[in-house]
Structure formats: structure tokens, C-alpha cells
Amino acid sequence: MRTDHKYILQMIEPNSHVLDLGCGDGELLTLLMKYKNCRTTGIEIDEKEIYKCVERGVSVSHGDIDSGLADYSDKRFDYVILNESLQEILDPEKVIAEALRVGKKVIVGIPNFCNIVARLQIFFLGKVPVTEGLPYTWYNTPNLRFLSIKDFREFCSGRQITIERQLAIGTSKEIFLWPNLLATVALFLISKS
């Protein structure tokens, strides 16, 4: 099981109703159905991934996250997941607001662009970093937004968004010391204050 999936599973109460934004091949939702008895649905833009979701028995809607969220009424889900998709969204501010509207809680997973390896590469090589967690070069990256744990915390504090839990993850395990420097990925459990 992927490390981030393992920690997301820990954050979610059993028997919850979950929406995964950018659910890919439906792997995370399959785990949530299997281990947490969750009722799930996903939104995914890539047609190829939809076939895999249907094969797994994951219910999914083909489309972009923005218009997909508009289909749902307020507080419809116990959890809305935005894992590894926020950095690829054109209007993250609007999507987070919408996710907090349709979900009681939102789980946001981001790659930490200010990880030490990235910082060292910028400093010593003078180039945009290419790391294990950020494997793309400037001309082929799908990422539109570049943020760190600190950036996301600041974003939340200015918008009455409560961070109920923060989980910083290194290559394979949770990181407690200097997360913004050492973590490659971070998960936030947030809700609207």
C-alpha cells in the first residue's frame, strides 16, 4: 500500500461517505471500501483511468474537478479527498472552498516543494529541482502550483480553515522534526471554522 494511502486510511472513520477528487484508477477508494466499509465516489479527468475505476467497481464521474463539485449539495460527504491533485488545479482557492462546502471534512495531500533536497538543488545547482517526489522538469510538469507545508498553513489561517491534523511524510514514514524541511509529502485534515 502506498504510504500516503496508509495515512489517509487512518484519518477516515469507518462507514463514511467519501468523495475523491482526481481519484485516478480508484485505488484509494477501493481501499476505503475494503478496509473502512466506506461508500465512495470519485471524479477523474483522464478517460483511461475511468475504465480502471469501473473495472474495480468504483463509481466515478468523468470530468474536471470544478464542474464535478457543482453536482453535489452542501455537506453531502463526510470526507472529500484532494490528494496529489491540488498542485495541478487552475483555481485551488475555489476548489478548496467547494470541497469544504460539499464535505464535512477535507483531506488535502500535497507534495512539499520546499523539501531539503529541492532546496539544496536550487542553492547549489542553480536549477529548478527534480527530485524523487517531484520528478518533472519545467517543460513537462503537470504541476501548476508550487507550495510547501508552511504555505498551505498560511493559506488556511487566512480563511477560517481549521487544520485538525497535519501529517508530514518522508520517504516512507511520518516526520515529526522540521517537517517543512524534511517531509516530501504532507497530509492535512481540514474543516471550515
Binding site: T41, E47, I50, Y51, C53, V54, S59, V60, S61, H62, G63, D71, S73
Partner: peptide, 10 residues
């Protein structure tokens, strides 16, 4: 809107 289990693909 009715919580029906539906998948959609284009």
C-alpha cells in the same frame, strides 16, 4: 442529488 450510485464516462 438522490444519492444514486452512478458512473459517467465520455
Amino acid at each position: 442529488a438522490n444519492e444514486i450510485d452512478v458512473s459517467f464516462i465520455e
